[in-house]
Simulated scan of single mutants.
Amino acid sequence: MTFADDDVERIVTAVETIEESLAILAEKQAIPRERYLTETETQDVVERRFVKLTEATLDIARTIVVNESGRRPESNPAAMIDLGAIEVFDRCETAEMAQAARFRNVLAHTYGRSIDHDDVYDALCDLERYRDFLYDIKAYLDETGAL
Rank of each mutant, 00 (worst) to 15 (best):
I60K: 06
P32S: 10
Q99G: 05
S75F: 10
A61L: 08
I115T: 14
K52Q: 14
V46T: 00
H117Q: 14
V12A: 12
R71S: 09
D116M: 12
F50G: 07
N76L: 11
I31L: 10
V12D: 13
M1G: 15
D90N: 07
K52M: 12
F50P: 07
V106E: 11
R91I: 05
Q29H: 01
F89G: 04
V15W: 03
R129G: 11
L83I: 03
S75D: 12
T13G: 07
D44I: 07
V66W: 09
A78P: 03
E16M: 09
T54N: 14
E20L: 13
R102E: 11
V12F: 06
E87L: 05
Q43A: 10
L124N: 05
V120E: 00
D59C: 09
T63W: 02
E47G: 04
P32Y: 10
D122I: 06
E128N: 08
T42H: 01
E55G: 02
D7Y: 12
R71D: 01
R113S: 15
R104N: 06
I86Y: 04
N76I: 05
A123S: 13
V65P: 03
P77N: 06
A146I: 08
V15M: 09
A146G: 11
D5L: 15
K138I: 09
R48V: 05
F103T: 06
T17W: 10
G112S: 10
R91C: 09
Q29L: 02
T40I: 15
V45E: 10
V88K: 03
K28I: 02
R104Q: 01
V46Q: 01
I137P: 01
L53N: 03
T63D: 05
V8W: 01
L141T: 12
A123R: 14
S114L: 15
S114R: 15
L124Q: 04
E20H: 12
D6S: 15
R72C: 08
R91T: 07
V8F: 01
I86S: 00
L147M: 14
R62G: 02
A123D: 09
N76K: 07
E34I: 10
V88E: 00
I64Q: 04
T144C: 11
S75G: 10
I86C: 02
A23I: 11
M1K: 11
Y130N: 05
I81P: 05
I18M: 09
I60P: 01
Q43Y: 09
R35L: 09
I31W: 00
L25P: 03
R48G: 03
D136E: 04
V106R: 08
S75L: 11
P73D: 06
E39S: 04
R104C: 01
K52P: 05
D59G: 10
L37D: 01
L107M: 02
R35V: 11
A98R: 01
V88C: 03
F50N: 07
R48F: 05
V88Y: 00
A4C: 08
